[in-house]
Amino acid sequence: MSRTLRTTLITLGVLLLLYGVFYFLGRPAIPLPTIRYPVPQGQTLHNLVTATEADEIKLDLNTKGSLNLTSAGEELVKLNFTPQTLATTLDLALKLAPGETLQAYQQFVDRFPVYPWLLRYTSELFFHVLPIRFSVVMTP
């Protein structure tokens, strides 16, 4: 067995072993650094942020299927999703979108036919295999 093949197999084995541990721990979402976003005055979102007592809204997206909006620990809105429900929402949003959005999307898909598959694959990957979590803190 060549040295390259051996190294590849060992790396693969270590990766699988690590993922096994990760899986048996319940696939906790991998946290990414929190982004702070000062919302410019005049935006609708700015009014919402300033209407909270803490002057802050935190958006938490967990690709395992939840999106939470909180303010100083108080829950404001929560969305639970699966790749299927997300696909239904996207499909509906495209049909309801004003103007030529649907046609533009269809033209894009005609050029890149792999796109719908890639989109579904990505959402399935981050939902089932490698969930990640990221947060955006919105301040005035």
Partner: peptide, 16 residues
């Protein structure tokens, strides 16, 4: 076809 489940909290509606 099922859409994502949305939970509204009274605190959130009060903010709006």
């Amino acid at each position: 076809s099922t859409l994502p489940q949305l939970t509204l909290y009274e605190g959130g509606i009060n903010v709006v």
